[in-house]
């Protein structure tokens, strides 16, 4: 495994407020990570610390296996919160400054502007850009050095649907090139659409780190439709696989207790003389899973408090 970033017991206190509380996780090369959490859960603060703009209270992190590595930032492209550029400079001039800072070649500017579809506006002032264009310029700036890691904090915040789709496409494109991406967002379907891994933060603590698939331990559920619903429910109830069978308006929802293939289930039902008009195996969407995680966390705290 090739570990790009390793965070070890990182904490940040603002006075009495604990913004980030003992967070540890690591990021592997080539994956797309979603950094999830409600507002104020410490996402931006965590990113600020690993990007050297916020001083940590405790803890450490390693970029590419090295602690205190200012050179590492030149191999990273990052946008935090909102695009920050010199409003009086043109897009190209702004990128020139970024290129000089990152010691990247100025000749890459046109290429990157092309990727985010801004080449035709390269000589226009940043101040004249729409929010979507500013956001895209920020992505172009982050890509300038052909980064090994791309960090995007709420890249679609405040954009219209077209803008969101455009940014999402750009992110997918970049992910395909094998760039490691860390995407902080509270928009879950955002993350679900592009991320393979997730780190979930809540109230400054990290409560999950792993693949998006494994985020929920649940096995999922089936949606089944047939002409004779009563018959179907009877047969399902006689099987050992389900923990809950609910009749819905147009179909039956059966929640799994032990794992079962859709194909397998279909075979069994056909053998029992039931022909399905509708068969889908589903898992809770990320939003549901995320809410469950946060809820569990809260439940645990509540129980703890009660015990104490």
């Amino acid at each position: 495994m090739n570990i790009v970033l390793e965070i070890d017991k990182l904490s940040k206190h603002f006075g009495s407020l604990v913004a980030v509380d003992n967070i540890s996780f690591s990021v592997e090369k080539g994956n797309v990570y979603g950094l999830l959490g409600p507002n104020g859960s410490g996402k931006t603060t965590t990113l600020g610390m690993i990007l050297n703009v916020v001083n940590p209270t405790k803890g450490s992190w390693k970029w590419f296996g090295k602690e205190h590595n200012p050179e590492a930032l030149k191999k990273i492209g990052a946008i935090i919160e909102r695009p920050n550029f010199y409003p009086y400079l043109s897009a190209a001039k702004n990128l020139q400054i970024v290129a000089n800072i990152k010691q990247a070649s100025v000749s890459l500017i046109d290429e990157k502007l092309e990727i985010v579809d801004l080449l035709h506006r390269k000589n226009d002032k940043f101040a004249a850009f729409s929010l979507g264009m500013k956001q895209r310029l920020a992505i172009a700036a982050a890509l300038l050095n052909n980064p090994e890691v791309l960090i995007l904090d709420e890249p679609t915040n405040g954009l219209d649907p077209q803008g969101i789709i455009k940014i999402r496409e750009i992110i997918k494109q970049i992910a395909e090139t094998g760039t490691t991406i860390i995407l902080a967002s509270h928009l879950l379907d955002e993350v679900e659409k592009v991320c393979s891994h997730a780190v979930v933060l809540n109230k400054g603590k990290s409560i999950y780190c792993g693949t998006v698939e494994n985020m929920s331990s649940e096995l999922g559920y089936f949606e089944l439709g047939t002409a004779n619903v009563d018959n179907l429910i009877g047969i399902l109830e006689s099987m050992p696989y389900f923990e809950k069978i609910v009749r819905k308006q147009h179909f039956v929802s059966a929640t799994l207790k032990t794992d079962l293939d859709a194909e397998e289930l279909n075979k069994i039902l056909v053998n029992s003389g039931i022909f399905l008009s509708h068969l889908v195996k589903r898992k809770d969407n990320l939003e549901q899973q995320f809410l469950n995680l946060i809820k569990n966390e809260t439940d645990v705290t509540i129980t703890k408090n009660r015990v104490e």
Binding site: V53, P70, A78, Y86
Partner: peptide, 18 residues
């Protein structure tokens, strides 16, 4: 002060300026 009001100081640091 412009670096602060445009918040470019933050971006400069993130981009790798110490």
């Amino acid at each position: 002060t412009n670096e602060y009001s445009y918040r470019t100081i933050k971006q400069n640091l993130i981009d790798g300026l110490t």
